[in-house]
């Protein structure tokens, strides 16, 4: 009879919750006025003006290796580097934008994902996606330092300050964090403003996607007048021969897409971009979580069923046991 009770209670629990089980959700859609950047690797000359500018905007010290005083020598993102330019090299490394025997530069900073893993996993909502601009911001007051955001970010972007006993997470907030607010004030991002070749271009996600698609239709070897600064009202233009682009806009679809888009002539996996499916891991994780627990309804229903069974069984065994 105990087993029957158990099955009955379990059955009721499952039935009761089945109706309220949340459906696995699809990927999030881009924010209505999503702002972002287009990084075109074929334009980047590796001057790292954007790295210096980023440090200036965010009040972070330059990383200096040896005598390289003029330039920032940070190798990767860290608690005091939100933006790096990485070098791709192969063989002779004398041909710009070639996979074999070539070289090129790749920007690493927060991609401002459309369906951000960091936001999904943060237990205390310390990372948030702005409802209009889609900018992913960080709120230190809530953060407990669990670093799940680093683990849940496909690009390993959020960086904890490990050398500080009272550290925090650091990440690019599109130059729009409290105290900086460049976007709110109608300015563009620091890195886009500093870029001399238009390799880092600021704009809305829609405009940047149009510009990126246009570039993919250009013929390699032709001359194109590349805009610099803000794609909507460029500060200047930069004429350059069109490179042989990979027919792929990184960030249009990867894991739900990103607001920071990349173009390149060298395959993206060679540049260290991760192997991402179109479905965001965040959407799968949230779907599983909500299906299992259906917010708090399922656990509550399960508790009622379990208490009933346990109550019966502890009573039954009162004779031979004292608990």
């Amino acid at each position: 009879m105990k087993r029957r009770d158990f099955l009955k209670a379990t059955g009721a629990t499952l039935l009761g919750s089945a109706s309220s089980v949340a459906q696995a959700r699809p990927n999030l859609e881009p924010a209505p006025e999503a702002v972002g950047m287009l990084f075109d690797s074929t334009l980047c000359v590796g001057c790292k003006a954007c790295v210096s500018k980023c440090k200036e905007v965010n009040g972070m010290p330059p990383v200096i290796e040896g005598d390289a005083v003029q330039y920032d020598s940070a190798r990767d993102l860290s608690g005091d580097t939100l933006n790096v330019i990485k070098l791709y090299q192969n063989g002779q490394a004398n041909q710009k934008d070639q996979e074999v025997d070539g070289f090129c530069f790749e920007k690493r900073s927060c991609m401002h994902c459309v369906d951000p893993g960091c936001v999904s996993v943060c237990p205390v909502t310390a990372l948030r996606r702005h409802p209009k601009t889609g900018i992913i911001s960080y709120h230190v007051d809530a953060c407990i330092g669990c670093r799940n955001c680093t683990m849940g970010c496909p690009y390993n972007v959020p960086q904890f300050e490990y050398d500080n006993p009272f550290g925090q997470i650091r990440k690019c907030e599109m130059c729009n964090q409290a105290g900086v607010e460049r976007i709110d004030q109608g300015q563009m991002t620091g890195c886009a403003e500093a870029c001399p070749t238009g390799a880092t271009l600021f704009g809305t996600r829609n405009e940047l996607l149009i510009e990126a698609k246009r570039r993919l239709t250009l013929k390699p070897g032709d001359i194109y007048n590349y805009p610099c600064g803000d794609v909507n009202h460029p500060d200047s233009w930069h004429e350059q021969e069109v490179a042989a682009y990979q027919p792929h806009i990184w960030g249009e679809k990867e894991a739900g897409g990103t607001n920071v888009l990349h173009l390149s002539a060298v395959p993206f996996d060679k540049l260290g971009m991760p192997p991402l499916p179109e479905r965001s891991y965040a959407s799968i994780s949230e779907g599983v979580q909500h299906t299992l627990y259906s917010y708090l309804a399922l656990p509550a229903a399960a508790l009622v069923g379990l208490s009933y069974v346990v109550h019966r069984n502890t009573r039954d065994s009162e004779g031979d046991s004292d608990e």
Binding site: V119, S120, V121, C122, P123, V124, T125, A126, A142, C146, N148, A282, S285, E286, Q289, H290, Y295
Partner: peptide, 9 residues
């Protein structure tokens, strides 16, 4: 503060 999408929570 709670983010109910978060497994960690």
């Amino acid at each position: 503060n709670m983010n109910f999408n978060s497994v960690m929570l």
